[in-house]
């Protein structure tokens, strides 16, 4: 079947979708957006969390056909989503970000699928500036995850970022218990969650300063 929906602000279409495919599979294998992760495919880890019409859901449990006509935000579009939110919150502030990065696009989003091997081969860790990353413009919660050391293997990170960003949208001043509850559907096996707590607190604090 054919499925048409919006991902990170761009219309997307997938053909020859098997009816049993999940939204996660379509994003990863058909639309070239593998940022949402396939850790359990049973709704028990949160690694595949995306926003579906604004609501965080496990994309592994959304049938592809159920996404028809819906709006999806994935980790690949999180930075742009956060920028849009900031713009909407502060309409009179001049926009200094310049040309908006068409970020909904992971590698190869326009037409091709998956991570092309060239992109995979070209993976290099450029330590241009060891303290601030490489200058890519990120959502505050993404930057906070890097700064706080909340990323180790990183496989849980995309889902956690989408969930944490949505929580901060609803609850800008979360208590520790609020953070834990909001992220209790996202498993991490590397960090013991302490640095993730630090990252979300940091993002909330920076968000507070920015307002």
């Amino acid at each position: 079947m054919r499925v048409t929906f919006t991902v990170n602000g761009r219309p997307q279409e997938a053909d020859d979708v098997w009816e049993g495919e999940s939204l996660l599979y379509v994003l990863r294998e058909r639309l070239g957006l593998p940022g949402s992760k396939n850790a359990c495919e049973q709704g028990e880890c949160g690694s595949c969390t995306v926003r579906l019409d604004g609501v965080p859901v496990c994309s592994c449990l959304v049938a592809a056909g159920q996404a028809e006509g819906r709006e999806i935000v994935t980790v690949e579009g999180l930075a742009e989503h956060a920028r849009e939110r900031a713009r909407a919150a502060a309409p009179r502030t001049s926009d200094t970000t310049g040309a908006s990065d068409p970020s909904g696009s992971g590698p190869g989003a326009s037409g091709t699928a998956g991570t092309p091997l060239d992109a995979a081969r070209a993976w290099r860790a450029h330590g241009a500036d060891p303290h601030t990353g490489d200058g890519t413009e990120l959502a505050p919660v993404q930057q906070a995850f890097i700064d706080a050391g909340a990323v180790q293997c990183g496989f849980c990170t995309p889902g956690l970022l989408v969930a944490a960003d949505e929580m901060l949208e609803r609850n800008p001043n979360p208590s520790d218990a609020d953070i834990r509850e909001a992220l209790s559907g996202n498993l991490c096996r590397c960090t013991g969650y302490e640095k993730i707590m630090d990252a979300v607190r940091l993002a909330a604090a920076r968000q507070g300063e920015a307002v």
Binding site: R28, E29, G32, L33, P34, G35, S36, K37, N38, T74, V75, E76, L78, A79, S103, G106, P107, G108, A113, G114, T115, P116, L117, A119, A120, W123, A125, H126, G127, P130, H131, T132, G133, D134, T136, L138, Q142, Q143, F145, I146, D147, G149, V151, G154, F155, T157, P158, L161
Partner: peptide, 24 residues
């Protein structure tokens, strides 16, 4: 020093290519 991960940016943007993300 607590320098930051060189792969951190790719990992928070979803662009880091894990083995299950490979495609050909």
């Amino acid at each position: 020093e607590s320098t930051l991960r060189p792969d951190g940016t790719l990992k928070v943007t979803g662009e880091f290519a894990y083995s299950s993300d490979m495609w050909h």
